[in-house]
Simulated assay, not measured.
Amino acid sequence: MTTLPPGFTHELRTHLRSHNPPVDETTGVPILDFNKFCCGAHGFAALIETQVDGDAPQVTLFDTGPDVTSLVRNIDSMHVPVEKIERVIISHWHSDHTGGLLSFLDLRDSEAHACVVDVHPSRPLLRGIAPGPQFNKIICALPRDPSFDDIVEHGGILEQHATGHTVADDTVWVSGEVPRVTEFETGILGGMRWTEDGTWKLEPHIMDERYAVIDVAGKGLVILSACSHSGIVNVVKDAVATFQRPIYMVRIVFPGR
């Protein structure tokens, strides 16, 4: 429904050309199957493919969307070779980024290939939302994130990282805690965390959030920052300070405020 950049095609054309839709017996023309079209949902998931020189490509999944159906449906619709996805990076513990993890692992397990799940160790029991201006009334809780045991039971190889590290044969860097250095990026106001003592605690900063970086040859840093509750300026400053390289592209869902 919008004008696309050069080199891109509308999904309808891609579907007709690449998906071999069935042909109507009466008219002899192909029939669109909307069940095999991609779907959008609130949340985030991105497929990262990296390659150095003539080495084999590395395929990494960054977040998994909000629910059990969207990601696996899109993987099927786009004919993504799921067996090549060797690692899932979870940017932070919010269920619109972790909701598709277990269904993805079930799909991945059906291909008889193990998959690493890279998470921050500080998993909350539950997170909720308290809108302003007082930020003192919880209006809802987000669905619970998969537990560590859930991840293992569904075939994931659990890795917990609180500090920066490289993955995918050193082609992708996953950050540690993002330093909060700006005054105007205040996190997600009204963010709440359910604590082990049975109370809600105000948690605007979402300190478990991480970002991913790929240093593209001849270009610079490509940053994937998901929601960027830590603040996208904080993220960019940290990436530049870490790598001493220029920024080529920043991918963000929506900025933390």
Results as ranks from 00 to 15, higher is better:
R17I: 10
G100F: 02
F8T: 02
L101S: 04
S18I: 00
S77N: 13
I139C: 03
Q51L: 10
N74V: 07
Y248V: 04
G132F: 09
L105V: 00
A239K: 04
L126V: 09
V59H: 09
K36I: 03
V235G: 02
S175E: 04
L189T: 10
S18D: 15
D215T: 10
N74E: 04
E49R: 12
C227P: 04
D215Y: 05
I31Q: 15
I206S: 09
L101G: 05
H42A: 15
D169W: 01
A217V: 11
E196A: 14
G256E: 09
I129P: 00
E196G: 01
L32W: 06
I31T: 14
Y211T: 07
N20D: 13
C140G: 15
D170P: 01
L142P: 00
D67F: 06
A46C: 15
G132S: 08
V116D: 09
E185L: 06
G100S: 05
V167I: 15
S228T: 08
F34C: 08
P255C: 14
K237R: 15
V59R: 15
D55G: 07
D33C: 10
L125E: 11
R180A: 14
S110Y: 05
Q134P: 00
T50Y: 08
F148I: 03
L221N: 07
S103I: 00
D55R: 11
R251V: 12
A112G: 02
N20S: 15
D96F: 14
R210T: 09
D106P: 00
D169R: 12
I206T: 11
I90E: 00
T50Q: 06
V116L: 06
E111Q: 14
L189S: 13
D24G: 04
T195G: 01
C140T: 15
P21T: 10
S77P: 06
E185A: 07
L61E: 05
I252C: 15
R245P: 01
A41S: 14
P66I: 02
G191D: 07
D145F: 06
G218T: 06
Q160P: 00
P179I: 12
L126C: 10
V240W: 01
A130W: 02
D170R: 12
H161N: 13
C39Y: 08
V59I: 14
M78D: 05
H10V: 10
V119W: 02
I90L: 14
F254S: 12
G176D: 06
P143G: 08
D109G: 10
R73I: 01
P133D: 09
T2M: 11
H97P: 00
L102P: 00
I214P: 00
D67K: 01
T60Y: 04
D109T: 11
E177Y: 04
H10Q: 09
